[in-house]
């Protein structure tokens, strides 16, 4: 990887960092609000996997933040650059499609992890958390961030206007993340919805991530690893193919 890659990565990180109140502080606050409201309503009534509801909720919120912000970073950066036209600044230099991909996705992962860490710090005080198998935490955070970062690249390249990107976000990313077991264990769902949830790859990201905290989860972390790993490989190949062909970027 050359200097072009590291500069593009640096620029992408600097971009979100410069508007940190919007890209980091705001999602942390949103997660904190979710926690306050849901734990207020449910703490006394629900226990999941033998842990308190608030403790159960925290890893879910952290991972949801990682995923949503990873997606938001690459997709919003690309759509803004395309709409304003400054995308030419990265298309004119000798940057390969692989460098382009890695820089945008890695910056997305960084944003996801920064926000995730922020949510963890902000919510940590509300519930006793354990870190039983921290390797899983790291593995799923990285893989989930990469997948959503890739999806963000796809959406950012595909969308021509902000409302198209918003549709991608509202009708695909939001349902996938909200219906993935962030707020509940899917074992508490009716059988039909349990089945549906098993087709949602985000469920495995959240579940595997949560396994790292408590050592228990709805699915085996190895199953989650293979599903998430499979998605990662497929999406990476798909995105790289789009970029190689210059889809919507190099007409």
């Amino acid at each position: 990887m050359g200097h072009g890659f590291s500069t593009l990565l640096y620029k992408e990180v600097l971009r979100f960092w410069k508007v940190g109140s919007q890209t980091v502080a705001a999602p942390v606050l949103t997660s904190l609000l979710y926690l306050l409201i849901f734990s207020h309503v449910l703490e006394a009534h629900v226990k999941v996997h033998g842990v308190s509801y608030t403790a159960f909720l925290v890893p879910g919120l952290v991972m949801m933040s990682v995923l949503q912000n990873a997606f938001a970073n690459s997709s919003s950066s690309l759509i803004q650059s395309k709409v304003t036209g400054n995308i030419v600044f990265v298309l004119l230099p000798p940057i390969s499609y692989l460098e382009f991909f890695l820089a945008y996705v890695l910056a997305s992962v960084v944003r996801g992890l920064v926000v995730g860490a922020g949510v963890l710090l902000a919510t940590f005080w509300f519930a006793p958390l354990t870190f039983v198998e921290p390797v899983w935490i790291l593995v799923f955070a990285l893989m989930g961030g990469t997948i959503l970062g890739s999806l963000g690249v796809i959406a950012g390249i595909w969308a021509e206007k902000f409302d198209q990107l918003a549709a991608f976000q509202n009708f695909l990313i939001m349902p996938l993340t909200f219906l993935s077991g962030v707020f509940y264990s899917i074992n508490s769902l009716p059988p039909f919805w349990q089945q549906v949830s098993h087709w949602n790859p985000v469920f495995y990201m959240i579940d595997g991530f949560r396994h790292g905290f408590f050592g228990v989860s709805d699915a085996s972390p190895w199953l989650s690893l293979s599903v998430v790993g499979g998605c990662l490989v497929l999406l990476t190949l798909f995105t790289l193919n789009l970029l190689k062909r210059g889809y919507k970027l190099r007409a």
Binding site: G4, T7, L8, K11, R15, K18, V88, F89, L92, P93
Partner: peptide
């Protein structure tokens, strides 16, 4: 076209890096 996130010098340094 321009990148609204950066100053003139930052834009030029970033472009050099590319």
């Amino acid at each position: 076209v321009f990148d609204p996130f950066f100053t003139v010098r930052e834009s030029l340094k970033i472009q050099s890096g590319y």
